[in-house]
Simulated assay, not measured.
Amino acid sequence: MDNLLRQLYQDRSTDEHTLGIISVEKRDKQDANTDYFDVVLLVVVSEDKPDWEIKHYVYDDYKVAMHLVNTSQIKDWLLNSSNRRVVDWLMNGKVVFDRNEFTKNFRQQMIEFPHEDRQKRIGVEFSKLIRRFADGKSLFHNGHYLDAYNQIVHALHHLARLSVLEHGFHPEVTVWQQVKKIEPEIHKLYSELVTGGESIEKRLELLLLANEFELMTKTRLGSAHLIDLMKTKDGPWTIEELKRKLESNDYSLDVSILLEYLVEKGFVDVIKQETKGRSIYHRFYVVNENS
């Protein structure tokens, strides 16, 4: 089948916009990493091409999926952990074409995981963790235990990915396997939630307390990117300025609740500025000098 694959990607390799091509084979019948296709061809293209295109091919019973993805979309997936399969594809797939060693260098950058990139991804996961935990806590106190359970499971996933990032690795599809080696106590929290023998109400009650503690221990780490960003400006920030500066829809989506959490914990101070309305003030944010 190598000749078939070569026919599919040969035209792409001659396109000047193609930076690299990676082949990923299905490992076994139950492997969903390739969407049950026999092979995935990941074609990395330059930013002036569409974000993401998919093409499906078949030869006899042999199925091939081609993903044409520009570099901007790949970086967005990596930043937001929104397509963790791409980590496996990029790191473990077979490079069949590499223009000017783009793929080799990209892989090396992923392995080295520059501090700035890692801090930003930690900020994204921490903001999502705050959102899921807050929603889960609210649902629990209103007696919606199954919905609360769903939110807390998601919160633990964000906590797990945060832990993996903290140790300098990219979260993969098998994130709990990673966490079991890195921070077994977080893996234990997850196991207690999904396999514990107590009632769902009791499990959630215990997990909310444990989650609260984990949040406190991760606050300085998780807020470092946002705090450092806010320190780049002498004056206070509006919420809109911060949202635009974050340059990530997933990050900015939860920045309001993240700010409120940091205000509550004393990391960020609120400055009020009068509006034209009587007793109505604009709300601005500055980093607490002691944080």
Rank of each mutant, 00 (worst) to 15 (best):
L4T: 14
L5S: 11
L5C: 03
D15Q: 15
T18E: 08
I22K: 02
E25A: 13
Q30V: 05
N33I: 13
F37L: 07
V40C: 06
L41R: 02
S46R: 07
S46Y: 04
D48T: 05
K49Y: 11
H56F: 13
Y57H: 13
S72Y: 01
S72I: 05
Q73S: 00
W77S: 01
L79A: 11
N80T: 15
N80E: 15
N80W: 04
S81K: 01
R84N: 13
V87A: 07
L90F: 00
L90Q: 04
K94L: 08
K94P: 01
V95C: 12
V96W: 02
E101G: 01
F102M: 03
T103H: 02
F106P: 02
Q109G: 09
M110D: 00
I111Q: 07
I111K: 10
E116S: 11
D117I: 09
R118A: 05
Q119M: 12
Q119N: 04
K120S: 03
I122F: 02
I122L: 08
G123D: 12
S127G: 10
R131D: 11
L139D: 09
F140E: 10
F140P: 08
H141L: 13
D147H: 10
A148F: 08
Y149H: 08
V153C: 12
L159E: 00
A160F: 03
S163F: 01
V175N: 04
K180I: 09
K181Y: 12
P184K: 01
P184N: 03
H187Y: 13
L189A: 02
L189Y: 12
T195V: 11
G196I: 11
G196D: 06
S199R: 03
L204M: 05
L204V: 07
L209R: 09
A210S: 11
E212P: 04
F213Q: 13
L215Y: 03
T217W: 00
K218F: 05
K218W: 07
T219N: 05
L221R: 12
G222I: 03
H225Y: 15
D228M: 08
K233E: 13
P236Y: 08
T238R: 05
E241W: 06
R244T: 14
S248W: 08
S248H: 09
N249S: 14
V255R: 00
E264D: 15
K265F: 03
V268W: 04
D269K: 09
K272Y: 14
E274M: 07
E274V: 06
T275C: 06
Y281M: 05
R283K: 12
R283Y: 05
V286P: 00
V286I: 14
V286M: 09
